[in-house]
């Protein structure tokens, strides 16, 4: 038992993160500065919000491939509601968040009511939501947002990028929910054995609906921060986000088969990928080399972690 806790996946991942930090600081002098590290928080935000909820989704044994498309759709809804329909921007933000949440809820309904496997359901809505974004926008980008709106994506709060506060808040909140609440325990129970969870009186469908809706909400919140960061709205925003988020979650040790995983793990997974992207670039590695490195780190980290866990079990 003790051995196991020492060689937990999260511990190994933490050591890998530390090793990466040390090596990259030696390789690139600009890397280990407060400015640079805080700045990375800006780039980490959108994928973090999505990955935190994706952890819940994957722990239940599901997956949500439509998050990137929900991000695109919410961004377009934000822009259209504000510019074309003439709503005040705060109201348009609420509309965009609602549409994203509804899109996630719709995923949940297809999955729970019609019993469509999550991968298939969200593959279909991946195409649908992106298509809606394209159709609604008519491929026009929307710009000219007021200055105050950029505080969210480009501003600072007590010297720390605004969106980092949001990410920190959501990390603590999701970590707390998954570890200490009945919701969290229900999430694990569903992933470990759905039938048993049902029999023991857990509201399986309700929990799942809530989680997929939350995933949609996270994607739409990410959309608003992203629009604020880049100051424009396009229908192709967030393309490929789903794979980045899933990569961070599985690197964090969440089992793709469900039942196992932590927010701490996802958090380290996110950080490791971001510091590799940033640090390698600062050390003079081009983006193609960075792709290769991230792929290798993903496979090797899980390989090492599996070896240790197998030994400690045996």
């Amino acid at each position: 038992m003790r051995m196991k806790s020492i060689f937990r996946h999260e511990t190994i991942l933490f050591l890998v993160v530390i090793a990466a930090l040390v090596i990259l600081s030696i390789q690139a002098e600009q890397f280990a500065t407060i400015d640079n590290l805080l700045n990375q928080g800006r780039f980490l935000t959108e994928v973090s919000l999505v990955a935190l909820i994706m952890t819940f989704v994957i722990v239940t044994g599901g997956i949500d491939l439509s998050v990137g498309s929900i991000l695109g759709l919410s961004a377009i809804v934000l822009g259209v509601a504000w510019k074309k329909l003439g709503l005040p921007l705060p109201l348009a933000i609420l509309v965009a968040l609602s549409v994203g949440t509804l899109a996630g809820l719709f995923n949940g309904i297809i999955i729970t009511r019609f019993k469509v496997p999550p991968l298939i359901a969200t593959l279909a809505t991946l195409a649908l939501y992106r298509g809606l974004a394209e159709g609604i926008s008519q491929a026009r980008s929307i710009r000219g947002y007021p200055e105050w709106f950029f505080v969210l994506g480009q501003g600072e709060f007590f010297g720390i990028p605004t969106q980092l506060w949001i990410v920190a808040f959501f990390t603590l909140l999701t970590g707390f929910i998954l570890t200490y609440t009945t919701w969290g325990r229900a999430t694990y129970a569903i992933g470990a054995n759905e039938t048993a969870a049902r029999f023991s009186g857990i509201a399986v469908d309700k929990t799942k609906l809530f989680i997929y809706a939350a995933s949609g909400f996270a994607a739409s919140l990410a959309a608003i921060i992203f629009v604020s960061r880049v100051s424009t709205t396009r229908s192709d925003m967030g393309m490929g986000l789903e794979l980045d988020a899933i990569t961070a979650v599985v690197l964090g040790g969440t089992s793709i088969f469900g039942g196992k995983g932590t927010i701490v793990g996802t958090f380290f997974g996110l950080i490791l990928i971001q510091i590799l992207k940033n640090g390698l670039s600062l050390a003079g590695v081009k983006s193609d080399g960075t792709y290769i490195a991230i792929g290798l780190v993903l496979i090797l980290t899980l390989l090492i972690s599996n070896l240790f866990n197998r030994n400690s079990e045996g």
């Binding site: 089992s255 081009k286 193609d288 490195a293 792929g295 993903l298 496979i299």
Partner: peptide
């Protein structure tokens, strides 16, 4: 043999192949 889920290994492989091709 290492017991890593295929989605993880192939996600990694995708990254490696894509970077490798451009290089």
């Amino acid at each position: 043999y290492a017991g890593i889920p295929s989605i993880v290994v192939t996600l990694g492989m995708m990254s490696i192949l894509r970077g490798g091709l451009i290089s």
